[in-house]
Nucleic acid binder design. Structure first.
Lengths: 141, 141
DNA sequence: GATATAGATACTGATATAGTATCCATAAAT
DNA sequence: ATTTATGGATACTATATCAGTATCTATATC
């Protein structure tokens, strides 16, 4: 546990917690729900706040609320906010001059994988935070 | 450089090199084309061989050829052969009993992300090794 | 003014990727 | 039959990223 990026999944978790309970919560409480390190969760909350998905109030009795309605927040919005490394990496070794494949593979793969990355984005755009909350409620009821 | 999995991209590279040059090549030569560590490339070649995408001949004057035609090998075949970690990880912290979200988020996210992973597979299935080779040739010509 | 919060920073620890070195088994070349 | 070049396996190391820990500052409420 530590080398796969779980920030996206944690971001969805905390936003779902806020949305489900419809209120403002401190990072301590949200970290408690995730059962993860408070500072780690804070760092994710900061990203969500900068992306204007969460609304921060600073100072005593401060905390995090939603900045937009759950229906208007897609998983793609959350994914973009935490900005995880691309799902598909291309190797970056120096080119071997005499080899046609070596000289062009990177550009060709980039081309192909842009399409794949776009497929991911299309898929994530189809699910909203409201969908996630309602699925959670369906399971608990 | 070392924490993103580049094996898929390297696997495509070596198979494209074999397909483009239409022959049998040693791991040394293939590693030379990639400009990567020979043993690392070997480990990938072993996976491709086990997945029956590459055909191995052992012993002196041995090497790697294609086991199937480039048109019949999709990027999904190659992706599955190297078996990289899932693009989307879900955090695995213990559940907080009192929290409805905490108790159900993992299953709900799994559900959603299965669809995303499937979108990736659908996309990769659309491109073949032959497509990659012809794109490379188009660039070099 | 005291206090509880967000937010930032520096350091540490754990894990997975990739590199290095070396060995064995096999089959071709001699 | 021997030599030799290959695939394949294994053990160890180096490095980068993710995540945890500790601590500090700024700010707004009480």
């Amino acid at each position: 546990m530590a080398s796969v990026n779980t920030q996206f999944s944690i971001a969805v978790h905390v936003l779902a917690a806020i949305a489900h309970n419809e209120g403002v919560f401190t990072s301590e409480i949200l970290a408690g729900s995730v059962n993860a390190n408070p500072v780690f969760v804070k760092r994710i909350l900061v990203k969500l706040s900068k992306a204007k998905l969460a609304k921060t109030t600073v100072g005593k009795s401060g905390g995090y609320g939603l900045a937009r309605s759950p229906k208007s927040i897609s998983l793609l919005d959350i994914y973009s906010a935490v900005n995880p490394p691309d799902a598909f990496a291309i190797h970056a070794y120096p080119k071997t001059k005499e080899c046609v494949v070596s000289c062009n593979i990177k550009e060709v793969m980039s081309d192909v994988l842009v399409g794949t990355q776009e497929a991911v984005r299309r898929d994530l755009r189809q699910t909203t935070l409201a969908d996630v909350v309602s699925k959670i409620r369906a399971r608990s009821g």
